[in-house]
Design a protein around this nucleic acid. Structure first.
Length: 320
DNA sequence: AATCAGCTCAACCGCGAAAGG
DNA sequence: ACCTTTCGCGGTTGAGCTGAT
């Protein structure tokens, strides 16, 4: 037996709201507020609607100062950063975007941004293959950050392809493949994480801290020391130096790390994510407060191809 | 003009959390 | 401590729209 329904679905109107219903709800909330009880509100307002339906209509459509569409690049950047850090916590993400609702942000991600990420991933693969052709002996350098044998971005590539089952619908469930799409935006993440695993484990509390890693901030910071672009790399083809923390600890990165203006960095998310480091830094702080272990969990989930579910928020409740 | 496929987004569903008795 | 009610959230659906054939 399931949970009892919140209302008698046979006796309430369902489906799209009429302008008259909108006006009834709007005027009631304007005059009386929600009263803290959405279940009782429709009866008081003279609406033949389920309370949950009223709440949703108000929050997602009738509430003042709601914005629809017209997402800016900065908003794209914020959504991507937070999604990468905390997963599909749409209410939290939306709360950082004035005028946006969780439903709106979720729809925007599912219908637009995710496709952009997939396109970015495919573009990256072409660039990476070209780079490896140009640099056939380049593996193993950079403090082991890029020397692992099996780039996870390639593993992700298969899961990034639209499956036949999901091809019929534009809307699919957020999954490990979404996490992989961010690996596409951050090409060195897979090998970075292989090298990073022991320290991430310490950061996550599953291993005792190493002597040089007593402080959480520095444990991740060590991964920000990315190798310089390969000498002689063709402009726009170097795609191997973006480190683990380019969202989480962007203030630690040197500007010279990313060759500007190349083909790779001139398309997709990379310019969005790199151009506003101050904003990224605050997002890093935010995400670290909400979900201190989120990154390790996300990549662990990607490893096992399960849905990404960050841990419950435990810190920094004052931010909410 | 008719049909089909793909896309968008408002709305619904059901679950877990929170609040209150 | 337990139960009930309500809220809030993320996942999913499907009607309507648009463009291609």
């Amino acid at each position: 037996m399931g949970r009892a329904p919140c209302c008698d679905k046979t006796s309430v109107k369902r489906g799209p709201w009429s302008p008259e219903e909108d006006e009834l709800l709007r005027s009631y909330v304007h005059n009386h507020g929600t009263g803290g009880n959405w279940i009782a509100l429709p009866h008081k307002a003279g609406l033949n609607r389920c309370g949950k339906s009223c709440r949703l209509r108000w929050l997602n459509y009738l509430r003042p100062d709601i914005k629809h569409g017209g997402y800016t690049e900065q908003e794209d950047r914020i959504i991507c950063s937070l999604y990468n850090s905390i997963g599909s916590r749409w209410s939290i993400i939306a709360s950082k975007l004035p005028g946006r609702t969780d439903n709106d942000v979720k729809n925007y991600w599912n219908t637009k941004l995710k496709k952009k990420a997939i396109a970015m991933h495919q573009h990256h693969h072409q660039q990476q293959e070209y780079y490896h052709q140009q640099q056939p002996h380049s593996s193993g350098g950079g403090r082991g950050r890029r020397g692992a044998a099996a780039p996870r971005s390639q593993q992700c590539a298969s899961s990034m392809q639209p499956s036949p089952a999901s091809a019929s619908s534009a809307v699919t469930t957020a999954s490990a493949s979404d996490a992989c799409s961010f690996g596409a935006m951050y090409p060195s993440l897979p090998t970075t994480l292989q090298a990073a695993a022991p320290v991430l484990a310490r950061y996550d509390g599953t291993l005792p801290p190493a002597p040089q890693q007593q402080q959480q901030a520095s444990s991740l910071a060590e991964f920000s020391v990315a190798p310089a672009p390969p000498t002689g790399a063709i402009s726009g083809t170097w795609a191997g130096g973006l480190p683990l923390d380019d969202m989480f600890l962007p203030e630690l990165l040197g500007d010279s790390e990313f060759p500007p203006g190349g083909d790779f960095f001139g398309t997709g998310f990379a310019p969005l994510l790199l151009q506003d480091r101050a904003a990224s830094a605050s997002l890093q702080e935010l995400s670290a407060c909400y979900f201190p272990n989120a990154q390790a969990e996300m990549w662990a989930a990607a490893d096992h191809h399960v849905n990404v579910k960050p841990p419950p928020a435990g810190l920094c409740h004052s931010l909410t």
